[in-house]
Amino acid sequence: MFDNDELVQLVTESGQRLNHPEFSGYIDDIGIDAVRALYEDLVVVRRIDSEATALQRQGELGLWAPLLGQEAAQVGSARALHSEDFVFASYREHGVAYCRNVDPTHMLRFWRGSTHSGWNPYEYRMTTPAIIVGAQALHATGYAMGMQFDGTDGATITYFGDGATSQGDISEAFGFAASFNAPVVFFCQNNQWAISEPVSVQSRVSIATRGRGFGVPSVRVDGNDVLAVIAVTRAALARAREGSGPTLIEAVTYRMGPHTTSDDPTRYRSAALDEEWRLKDPLDRIRALLESADAIDDSYLAAVQQKSDDTAAALRRGCLETVEPKPMSLFDNVYAESHSLIDDERRQFAEYLDSFEGTDA
């Protein structure tokens, strides 16, 4: 199941549902109503992303990391999780956060500079954005080992891109997880481009093969096929919960937009390549599946559109109505209890701010 580089696919680009001898059984419970719900997830997540991108362009966010094209990889893996599982994200997992019921407004506070975090990780069993590339894989492995020591049934999943696999933290996490049989799922969204370099620069073999080199069973999945992603993620989580250790999932997808809103992909990527992947759009694929099953009509599409419009409106309203923090709040919640170093820094900063009173500064 996890020992070859076959690309697992359960829905073709044209919307035809396929049978897979090892993975189809993991989605036997997903009927047409569940597919309709997944399509709604995909549409809403894309709308969250486009609205946040617009807010950044309008000067309301300092930066945004778009996920356009990667919706199926995120929605599929997130919908495979149990409530007790813990997510260790990078900085692009807005779709995962949505599926974990994080208020979309909270996703923006970090990028607006209104908070050091964004939400309580323990409330949603998901960490806030991690900017240090690859570090979250070590955190996920350590937390998984802790769950193992505590005798809990849950698992962890950590997300990173193809470029992060060149970081030492990822290799160290693979090594620890394999050696200690940690219940962690490594989920690589191979979107083909690490900022401006193609994945071929990151690795001369598949990323899944690199995992196997550390003794981590690995699988490659069509990351634009939401049903296939659910299936392989469920299989990997089942391995973790039964005590069989870590799994690496390489979700082969494509970043259709820029790395972040400060990036211009036209400087390093051809329009022809973009068009090639646009034909594999994850939303179009599931819509085609629904159409072939005669499970889509104007009423349903209008309801989905209304849900995405309402979510986008709430996102914009919440962003613009955010109460910006006071300067002195910088020192809140650094430690659980009073700390002399923080107390001294708080006093010095207060004196610095007071020095501006009565001036035009």
Results as ranks from 00 to 15, higher is better:
332 D>Y: 08
163 G>F: 07
322 T>F: 12
99 C>W: 04
182 A>S: 15
361 A>E: 09
210 R>Y: 02
32 I>Q: 07
248 L>D: 09
17 R>C: 13
351 E>H: 10
239 R>F: 05
355 S>C: 10
86 F>A: 02
201 V>Y: 06
298 D>N: 10
164 A>I: 07
70 Q>G: 08
314 A>Q: 08
296 I>M: 15
41 D>A: 07
326 K>E: 13
172 E>K: 10
200 S>Q: 12
206 S>F: 06
108 L>I: 02
136 Q>E: 07
196 S>Q: 05
335 Y>T: 03
289 L>W: 12
276 E>L: 10
266 T>C: 01
261 T>R: 12
132 I>Q: 09
354 D>A: 15
62 G>T: 11
195 I>V: 14
240 A>V: 03
233 T>S: 12
301 L>K: 07
329 S>A: 11
216 V>R: 01
35 V>L: 13
14 S>D: 15
300 Y>R: 11
269 R>Q: 02
229 V>Y: 05
140 A>Q: 05
53 T>Q: 12
165 T>K: 13
30 I>F: 15
357 E>K: 14
205 V>N: 04
276 E>I: 03
136 Q>K: 02
220 R>F: 09
337 E>H: 11
58 Q>E: 15
291 E>D: 13
106 H>R: 14
96 V>D: 04
348 Q>V: 06
153 D>I: 04
118 G>E: 06
168 G>W: 02
318 G>F: 13
235 A>N: 06
63 L>S: 04
49 D>I: 09
117 S>L: 05
173 A>D: 11
140 A>V: 01
3 D>I: 04
75 V>N: 06
41 D>Y: 09
218 S>Y: 01
207 I>K: 02
180 F>I: 00
255 R>F: 12
132 I>D: 05
326 K>I: 00
209 T>S: 15
127 T>W: 08
316 R>V: 10
123 E>T: 14
171 S>T: 11
149 F>G: 00
1 M>C: 05
271 A>K: 13
87 V>E: 06
339 H>D: 15
101 N>G: 00
28 D>T: 08
257 G>P: 00
109 R>F: 06
171 S>H: 15
291 E>T: 08
172 E>L: 14
131 I>H: 07
67 L>C: 05
113 G>R: 04
286 I>V: 15
153 D>C: 01
266 T>D: 05
55 L>M: 15
23 F>A: 02
179 S>K: 10
97 A>D: 10
153 D>W: 06
248 L>E: 08
109 R>L: 13
28 D>C: 01
135 A>P: 04
135 A>C: 05
39 Y>W: 09
127 T>D: 12
47 R>A: 11
212 R>I: 13
279 L>C: 03
306 Q>W: 00
318 G>M: 11
30 I>C: 08
280 K>A: 06
294 D>E: 14
204 R>M: 09
106 H>W: 11
200 S>R: 05
145 M>D: 12
319 C>S: 14
357 E>C: 00
306 Q>I: 00
235 A>K: 09
217 P>E: 08
222 D>Y: 10
277 W>Q: 07
334 V>W: 03
101 N>S: 13
340 S>M: 04
297 D>Y: 09
190 N>C: 04
46 R>A: 12
349 F>V: 12
58 Q>H: 13
17 R>E: 15
186 F>V: 01
128 T>H: 04
353 L>W: 05
248 L>I: 02
236 A>I: 05
287 R>L: 11
129 P>I: 05
39 Y>K: 07
185 V>C: 07
176 F>D: 06
91 Y>Q: 11
49 D>E: 06
